[in-house]
């Protein structure tokens, strides 16, 4: 495989990383797992002048769970670590499940969730779950940090809110309130190693009565140029009583807000149908999880 030459840096600390990034803002690419980046470089879709490998930056590794703050996942954490983490399984089981659907075991041991999110693919496995969780991103650069709701992160097809010199440092998934659950549903042609035709993450929070919707979030994938929330559906569903009609309505509204295209994997029409069924099923599963079923 013929690769265009590039410079390679492997910083040991955030300070070194931020210095490299600010100096080579326009021409550098971050290498975390490489499962997307190196494919693009080999196919000559990307030709970065410099690749900065964050594999040795210990300050980007780890998962912490805090009852008040929620779950924090640092950007260098491997997908397989997220998949198997006891904290993730306890506080964000749908994320653990979504992580387990990404690529193959080999890929999950290399790839990071930050890579999955920053790559900006509309069908990325973890993005809908993070949208449903209302995850907050910590974005850093030399001399500063900012926080951004994940729903504001993707701007257009494979374009993110990262400015030159910035990098994604951490994900924070706010602690789930009582009576709330997140579920993930997806569909590819085969059972694994897929680019999903559709995927969706849903958040359902109930009032104390356990039958009135207090809050919902719907994160949709592969039905538009970016993963995004079905905000109109969310507004309409709030306050409804949870029953079969609610589940069906949720599906219909999500499908109505989906804007898919025809491509090699599926037609737009089929994707809308799938979005309706998957959203309905995901809400039904979330309801069952809240009720402890």
């Amino acid at each position: 495989m013929h690769l265009e030459p590039f410079e390679y840096e492997k910083p040991n600390s955030l300070v070194e990383l931020e210095a490299l990034l600010s100096k080579h803002a326009d021409e550098a690419r971050l290498l975390a797992g490489g499962t997307d980046l190196l494919v693009l470089v080999k196919e000559k879709i990307l030709s970065p002048k410099m690749i900065i490998d964050i594999g040795d930056v210990a300050a980007l590794q780890g998962i912490t769970a805090d009852p008040a703050k929620g779950l924090t996942i640092l950007a260098g954490t491997k997908v397989s670590t997220i998949e198997h983490s006891a904290e993730v399984k306890e506080f964000a089981p749908a994320l653990s499940f979504a992580a387990a659907q990404l690529g193959s075991s080999q890929v999950r041991h290399m790839a990071t969730m930050a890579g999955n999110v920053c790559h900006g693919s509309p069908s990325a496995e973890t993005s809908p779950v993070l949208l449903a969780h209302g995850a907050v991103l910590t974005i850093a650069k030399a001399g500063g940090e900012r926080e951004l709701p994940i729903s504001d992160f993707w701007l257009a097809y494979r374009k993110t809110a990262l400015a030159p010199g910035e990098y994604l440092k951490a994900f924070t998934l706010p602690a789930l309130p009582k009576n709330a659950a997140v579920e993930y549903a997806f569909k590819g042609l085969r059972g694994a190693m897929e680019i999903d035709m559709v995927n969706v993450g849903v958040y359902l929070e109930l009032e104390e009565d356990l039958e009135t919707v207090k809050e919902v979030r719907i994160g949709m994938g592969a039905v538009g140029p970016i993963p995004y929330r079905a905000v109109k559906a969310e507004a309409e569903l709030k306050g409804m009583k949870v029953d079969d009609a609610f589940f069906a309505k949720a599906g219909e509204l999500a499908a109505a807000e989906a804007t898919p295209i025809d491509d090699v994997r599926a037609t737009a029409d089929y994707r809308k149908k799938l979005m309706s069924v998957l959203t309905r099923r995901a809400f039904s599963a979330a309801f069952a999880r809240i009720k402890g079923e």
Binding site: L189, R190, A192, M193, E194, I195, V264
Partner: peptide, 29 residues
């Protein structure tokens, strides 16, 4: 029966000559 098919453009280019887009069954299937 269920997944595999080489797809082509009308001008004769292969659209999925790789094992990501040409789908053989996996262990899960």
């Amino acid at each position: 029966a269920l997944y595999e098919e080489i797809k082509m453009t009308p001008d004769g280019r292969l659209m999925n000559p790789n094992l990501h887009d040409y789908k053989v069954p996996t262990m899960r299937d």
